[in-house]
């Protein structure tokens, strides 16, 4: 009976008061602010070097947002994610070069190939759990790279070069560094937004339930296998688009770009940023891709410093800069159990 409800106990919400920084982080406009900054930066520094670095960083953000669907949303540890980027980059490169097509026309083929790759890698492996899945994905990542290294269609160890640009209409060439940067930023922004939306959808909720407790999710009627496969396929397509941009950016693709370290760095961006939170992951990706460049003055020591900084962050903030849920719930005492028993509250 609602009139019997004991209202003397204050609502037990334990969220700490919001600081200005966390208010900024929570703000709905943050994404637009970030996009505006990304679009305005070339007006300040537009050297070929800075455009190159920023374009690479934007592509890295796309990869991290894709891996976040797999690892962050669905909780599947994937150590071979870069394989999907390789599939996208090679598919785009081979088709564009063979038919002398602008890269933009390879998009349908890339989508088909990455979905297939997601199915081929995902279907047999997704019955495995955590550690086993991680080992198998690590293996698949290496298999993809080694296959590309040995096939003639992929150009072997030297790869494919002289890949046509994204699109050229008359004098207007999307390959112009500043223009390409803008194209990349807009494409990446669209994918990040789409991934964030996906996280809030019905499928996104299912991913979270699977991540938190797969058995309970299954007992409540979630087709866990299908849901996990969907996460894999979305992640693969995101990686494939990263591959197209990568191929366009460098106009060359070679196996050395898809070594395990690359998978590890993307994963690091997701973990560092905060698994499951797209905003955190974008920040993590920017840190991982830009920090080594900012540390360039330290020359050979820069990767040492980079590594130390990552260790320091993980020691002091193991949940990442900005995890999906800001705090762990505090377990409350059995006060309410007593109220339950008295029948004052049912």
């Amino acid at each position: 009976m609602s009139e019997n409800v004991d209202t003397t106990l204050a609502p037990r919400t334990t969220r700490p008061p919001a600081s200005p920084i966390s208010r900024l982080f929570e703000s709905k406009q943050l994404g637009w602010i970030a996009l505006a900054i990304a679009l305005l930066i070339p007006l300040l520094i537009a050297t070929p070097y800075s455009l190159n670095v920023m374009t690479t960083a934007a592509i890295f953000v796309l990869l991290a947002s894709g891996l976040n669907i797999v690892v962050g949303y669905c909780g599947l540890l994937d150590l071979g994610y870069i394989a999907f980027m390789a599939v996208g980059a090679y598919t785009a490169g081979i088709i564009a070069k063979a038919f002398d097509l602008p890269l933009i026309f390879t998009i349908p083929a890339v989508i088909i190939m990455t979905v297939l790759a997601g199915l081929i890698i995902g279907a047999p492996t997704l019955r495995l759990r955590s550690d086993y899945l991680a080992i198998v994905t690590l293996g698949f990542g290496e298999i993809t790279r080694i296959t590309a290294n040995n096939l003639s269609i992929t150009g072997g160890p030297s790869g494919i070069f002289g890949i046509p640009g994204l699109l050229k209409i008359g004098d207007f060439d999307l390959q112009e560094p500043a223009v390409f940067y803008y194209v990349t930023v807009l494409v990446v922004a669209a994918f990040v937004l789409a991934a964030a939306r996906l996280g809030k959808s019905r499928l996104g909720r299912a991913w979270r339930f699977v991540r938190e407790d797969e058995d309970a999710a299954e007992a409540m009627g979630i087709h866990t296998y299908k849901v996990k496969l969907m996460a894999y396929i979305f992640g693969a397509v995101w990686g494939g688009f990263g591959g197209i941009l990568f191929a366009a950016h460098l106009s060359a693709v070679s196996p050395q770009s898809f070594v395990f370290l690359q998978s590890a760095l993307v994963l690091m961006a997701v973990v560092l940023g905060g698994m499951g939170n797209m905003r955190g992951v974008v920040i993590g990706a920017l840190v991982i891709s830009l920090l080594p460049e900012l540390l360039r003055d330290l020359s050979t020591y820069r990767y040492l410093v980079f590594g130390l900084l990552l260790v320091v962050v993980m020691v002091f903030r193991p949940q990442g800069f900005w995890p999906a849920r800001g705090y762990e719930p505090e377990r409350m005492g059995d006060v309410s159990d007593r109220r339950l028993a008295k029948g004052t509250v049912r």
């Binding site: 719930p329 409350m332 028993a341």
Partner: peptide
Amino acid sequence: LLPLLAERSTQQGGTLSGGEQQMLAIGRA
């Protein structure tokens, strides 16, 4: 049927007591 769940609807599941969590599990089903 279980008014305590209405009262707690915006609280995280982990903050509930054991009895309340059982009610939530039943309610969910």
